[in-house]
């Protein structure tokens, strides 16, 4: 592999992705900001006042980390799936396929684009959250590393979705029927200690639970699960999904006849 070619190619891909996100900011940045503002108003402010405290924090404070993580996850996923599937649909994926870029670089360039959009939206949602509640970051390193790792996992998942997608319906099925339910059931709005024992066990099979809780631990200092275990799970997902994407691209699945 020619490192210089792949480094310049990686930077080009990231630059292209960032320009795309900024160019269509009305589609990429504004909707999650509006959605999360509504969550803060309805769940945090109106309903939250009646709920009281959770794990020692008022409800608005408790859900803020989860809502930030939710926006990061959905936007990292959405960016990669729409960008790579769009390139397939418009056939300009061929610009990359005919070039000497390695498949690993193609994956990393798109994933980096997804992470950047996730972080941009996450930062905006954090600013919005500060209008509604006070947040002090207890463990900055854990907060930052977990948000980057979580967005990496979901950017990689978005890439898998884009590889297999053949029509636009295929890129909305997974977010609607898998990602959204897992996010809602991943402890964004509640502590799993509120659930019956059986559902607590079931919840442990949801990877988003680990990311939300580790991120919440980074900000508030409380978590339903072990932080070390959360890092292990996320690291396994990153390695597994990257390998899966690489194998799929090397075989030409979804991109070559």
């Amino acid at each position: 592999m020619d490192l210089k070619v792949n480094w310049v190619g990686f930077v080009t891909l990231v630059r292209k992705e960032v320009i795309r996100v900024v160019r269509i900011w009305v589609q990429t940045i504004v909707p999650p900001a509006i959605t999360m503002t509504l969550y803060f108003i309805i769940f945090g402010n109106l309903i939250g006042r009646r709920i009281g405290t959770m794990d020692g924090f008022d409800y608005m404070q408790y859900i803020a980390p989860g809502l930030i993580m939710m926006s990061v996850i959905t936007n990292s996923y959405g960016n990669v799936v729409s960008s790579f599937f769009g390139a397939k649909f418009g056939k300009h994926v061929e610009e990359m396929l005919v070039s000497p870029l390695s498949n690993a670089t193609i994956i990393m360039g798109h994933v980096a684009g997804g992470i950047i959009r996730g972080l941009m939206v996450g930062a905006l949602v954090t600013v919005i959250a500060l209008f509604f509640t006070q947040l002090s970051v207890e463990h900055p390193l854990i907060t930052l590393s977990m948000v980057v790792l979580a967005s990496t996992v979901f950017a990689l998942l978005g890439f898998v979705n884009a590889i297999f997608a053949k029509k636009f319906d295929d890129i909305s099925i997974i977010p609607t029927f898998v990602l959204t339910p897992l996010t809602y059931l991943g402890g964004v709005f509640y502590s799993i200690s509120l659930l019956p024992e059986f559902w607590q066990t079931v919840s442990l099979g949801n990877p988003i639970l680990y990311m939300v809780n580790a991120f919440r631990y980074g900000i508030l200092g409380v978590s339903d699960i072990s932080i070390g275990y959360a890092y292990l799970i996320v690291a396994i997902f990153v390695a597994g999904l990257f390998t899966l994407n690489l194998v799929l691209l090397n075989r030409g699945v979804g991109i070559r006849e």
Binding site: D2, K4, V5, N6, W7, V8, G9, V11, T12, L13, R15, K16, I19, R23, G86, A87, G90, K91, H92, E94, E95, M96, V98, S99, P100, L101
Partner: peptide, 30 residues
Amino acid sequence: ACIGLVPQELNMNQFDTVLNIVVNQAGYYG
């Protein structure tokens, strides 16, 4: 790295600018 292809079907990002399309392609070749 030795090949340049002009395909039969249009395969560019129609929303991107002419300059970006060409310069990005150069980036893919390092």
